[in-house]
Structure formats: C-alpha cells, structure tokens
Computed example of a mutant assay.
Amino acid sequence: MLLELAIGDAYGAGFEYANEMSADNDLSQYFKHPRHQLTPGSYTDDTQMSIAIAEVIVAQLPWTPEVLANSFVKTFKRDPREGYASRFYQFLLEIPDGKEFLAKIRPDSDKSGAAMRAAPIGIYRTPEKVIEAATIQAAITHNTPDGIDAAVVAALMSHYFIYRLGPKHKLGQFLEGYVSGNWSQPWEGTVKSKGWMSVRAAITAVMRNDSMSELLQDCIAFTGDVDTVAAIALGAGSCSEEITQDIPSHLVTDLENGPYGRDYLIELDKQLMTVYG
C-alpha cells in the first residue's frame, strides 16, 4: 500500500497543477515539475504523513490527537522535505512536538490533507473502527464536515479492498452506505484543492481501471491536484484483487531510497499488513 501510494505521489508531483505537462503522462519516468524544485522520484507530504499514520498503527500506540500530532512532527523533522503547503511547512519547522502542534494549529481546513494520509487506517478490522480512527486523525488539522468526510472515505476505500467486502464496481455504493455524498458519481474535469474532489476523482479512477498502470495515468489525466488523487487511488488499488499490479519496474527502482524511501516503505508495508492480519 505505502509503496504504491508513494509512487503515485512522486509521479503525480511532476504534474500537479501543471496542465502543460499533460502530454508527458506516459509512465516512462518521473518528471521534473516546471515550477517546483522537488527532485524527480521524490515523494511529498502525502506519503510522509501516511508514514506517520502507519507508524502509529504498527507501534500500536494510543490513537489520540497528541500521539498522532507527535508522529506528524517527528516524521517531518527527521526528514524535512518540500511538498507541504508553505505555511504548514513553516509551522512544522517551528513547533517542537505534538502538544504545541495541537495548541497552535488552526484545524479549519476542508482541503485534502487529512484524506491523503488516511489509506493506512483501512487496516482496522471494521468499518466502524476505520470511521472512528479516520475522524480522530482528520479533526487534528481538518475539523470540518468536508475535511472529515473525505478522510473517512479515503480510509474506507482501502478497507473495502483489504477485507474483500465487494466487487470493485460497487465501491462507490459501499462508501455511500457510510458517508453521505455522491461518491459513486463519476468525477470529470480538473481536481481542485478540496478534499472531497480528490477523493471523488480517486474513486472514479479505481472503479474504471483494471491495472495499476492505467489507474496511475488516469489519475494524472484529470489535471489539478493529481499527486493527491494518485496517492489515494494507488494506495487503495494496491489492495484490490481486481486490479493488475503492473506498475512499471523503473518507477519502483527510481523512487527515492534514502532512510525513509523505497526499502523503508516496503518494510513498513509488511509490518502494517500483519498488525491486524
């Protein structure tokens, strides 16, 4: 899950809000964004915050706002990287721990930050537990109805496939049974910054593609906030028996592999999938 999520994030980072790059979406390599400094093959905040969530789950720590916020801060400070919103990046640089994070954060966003990091939560055994855990983590930074709903749906996406709860074409219907919204309605057009938009686009792409390579290209083809769409979709799609796992090998080998890169993600994936297995 985390490896595929990171590949989607890193590949999508070259295309985020860069419509002029659309013709390059051929999976041949990681692309340099025309306006950002991120090195091709590097993942962004979508993956780093998903790692923070996964590490709390694997360590079986108390699922509290302070523990989760501590993990967000620790994960960032040991490996600072671009990709975060500029003000949130500065905020993370300045605060020392989760306690101060909670004291100073303004948790009023309805953007995609809480949804992009929610995929690992799908490992919990029941939809009710997934909803509870996703809500708690979302409220830390995105304590709005849309921000929380987007995170809950993103977590339920991976849960649906991990626990084989139904066929892929009924994913949207399943999600609508737990969270109000038109989650089964196909998304069309550019994906803007609202969390529900990225999640709707990710659901659409997962439901209409049968291989990971097609899924990744389809996510990027929406244009807009496509690294988040791809991270959510590939995290869920990696758990589906109906989706052929055919990510090009060069996108795996060319993904960053520092202390928290490819090999770390593979090992953390293994630990995550055995915690409740």
Rank of each mutant, 00 (worst) to 15 (best):
L2D: 05
L2I: 10
L2S: 08
L3Y: 00
L3W: 02
I7K: 04
G8R: 13
G14L: 04
E16H: 14
Y17M: 15
M21E: 01
A23E: 03
D24S: 08
D24V: 01
N25R: 06
L27E: 03
S28R: 14
P34E: 00
Q37P: 00
L38C: 09
G41R: 11
D46R: 02
T47W: 07
M49K: 12
S50F: 13
A52R: 13
A54R: 07
E55M: 06
I57H: 10
I57R: 12
A59L: 10
A59V: 06
Q60W: 03
T64I: 02
E66Q: 15
E66S: 12
V67T: 15
N70Q: 08
S71I: 12
F76G: 00
F76R: 02
D79N: 09
P80V: 06
G83F: 06
S86H: 14
R87A: 13
F88C: 06
Y89W: 07
L92V: 15
E94Q: 10
P96V: 08
G98T: 13
E100A: 02
P107N: 14
D108A: 05
G113H: 05
A114P: 11
A114Q: 11
A114E: 05
A115K: 11
R117N: 00
I121V: 15
G122S: 04
I123R: 09
Y124P: 05
R125D: 00
T126K: 12
T126Q: 03
P127Q: 06
V130G: 02
T135D: 08
T135Q: 12
A139M: 14
T141F: 06
T141R: 14
T144A: 12
P145Y: 15
P145F: 15
G147D: 07
I148E: 10
A150V: 14
A151R: 06
V152L: 10
L156P: 05
H159S: 00
Y160M: 02
Y160E: 00
Y163T: 02
L165K: 15
K168T: 14
K170V: 06
L171S: 01
G172T: 11
G172A: 05
F174K: 10
L175K: 03
E176R: 10
E176M: 15
G177Q: 14
S180C: 02
G181F: 04
S184T: 05
W187R: 08
K192W: 09
S193R: 10
V199N: 04
T204W: 07
T204N: 08
T204G: 04
V206A: 04
M207Y: 07
R208H: 13
D210E: 12
L215N: 09
L216G: 01
D218A: 09
D218T: 15
D218E: 14
C219T: 12
F222S: 10
T223H: 09
G224T: 14
V226K: 08
V226M: 07
V229A: 11
I232P: 14
S238G: 15
S238W: 08
C239P: 00
C239A: 08
S240P: 12
S240Y: 15
E242H: 09
Q245W: 07
I247V: 13
P248N: 07
S249Q: 13
L251F: 03
V252N: 01
E256G: 02
L265R: 05
L265Y: 11
I266L: 07
E267S: 11
L268S: 02
L268E: 01
D269W: 12
L272V: 03
L272Y: 02
T274D: 08
T274G: 07
